[in-house]
């Protein structure tokens, strides 16, 4: 048994691939991303029977549709429904990646900064591009709230720019740190339990404490898995506000 809590985050190559001079091997991370994506598609393929009176599965699919549609409408506005498929995809991709990562031997793709940063940067770039397409150069007014004395702009504009640029950073680090920390904790408790059992005698009996701790953390991690997907999705909606509401 590996005793390194970080060992579970190792990227392992399954097959190598070079594209235009870039080394992009298909790894365990890629495999589990594909598993998450296929699970999402499979789950929703089961839920879209299109019956007038929904069954149990169809109800779950329709509830998640309405839940996310209402989130987009309430947070950003009905005009942002163009981005609803993106929010839906990002929510379910992260949710399924997090949940699948909870099963033993599975790799948690969202525990890697590369993945969360790519998602966060893409989200922010999408906001910037959509904002400029929609509002033209006026979009940059989001950095300069109207109705302030000229002197204030010297302070406000840098603050607004920094706060805007920190969004992808916080978005990426929040998800990555939550998933990594949870899995490290889980591993540490499990390693400690195994260590105590290895000591034998009264120590083996004391291993009940870390086992209970592990169970608690597992429950907590399932909560975090759902919560972080929700947080990522709702923050995406909040940031999409800047596309439609330049004067804030």
């Amino acid at each position: 048994m590996a005793s390194d809590p970080m060992e579970q985050f190792q990227i392992k190559k399954i097959f190598d691939l070079d594209l235009a001079g870039l080394n992009i091997p298909f790894t365990n991370s890629s495999l589990w991303m594909a598993v998450a994506a296929i699970s999402v598609i499979g789950f929703f393929a089961l839920t879209t029977k299109g019956k007038l009176v929904p069954g149990r599965m169809q109800s779950v699919g329709e509830m998640s549709y309405e839940f996310l549609a209402n989130m987009v409408k309430d947070t950003t506005g009905p005009e942002a429904m163009k981005f609803f498929p993106f929010v839906f995809t990002i929510f379910f991709f992260i949710l399924f990646a997090n949940l699948i990562g909870m099963s033993p031997y599975a790799f948690t793709t969202t525990s890697h900064l590369a993945v969360t940063a790519a998602l966060a940067v893409f989200t922010i770039l999408m906001v910037i591009v959509a904002g400029i397409v929609k509002n033209g150069l006026k979009w940059f007014k989001i950095f300069a709230p109207s109705g302030l004395p000229i002197l204030m702009y010297i302070i406000i504009i840098p603050i607004e720019i920094v706060s805007f640029l920190s969004r992808p950073l916080t978005l990426a680090v929040r998800l990555f740190a939550n998933m990594t920390a949870g899995h490290v904790m889980l591993k540490l408790f499990a390693i400690f339990a195994a260590f105590l059992v290895g000591q034998g005698g009264i120590m083996a009996g004391a291993s009940i404490a870390p086992v209970i701790g592990t169970m608690g953390i597992i429950a907590l991690e399932f909560l975090v898995a759902g919560l972080q997907a929700f947080v990522f999705a709702i923050l995406t909606c909040v940031y999409l506000n800047d596309v439609y509401h330049v004067d804030h």
Partner: peptide
């Protein structure tokens, strides 16, 4: 930590883009 091993980033991001794009396309 393995997360800061930048040699794996290109591969992860490439496959993320591919898989996410497929997922987005199918869902949308």
């Amino acid at each position: 930590i393995p997360q800061l091993d930048f040699s794996t980033w290109a591969g992860q991001i490439f496959w993320l883009i591919v898989i996410f794009a497929i997922l987005y396309f199918v869902l949308a």
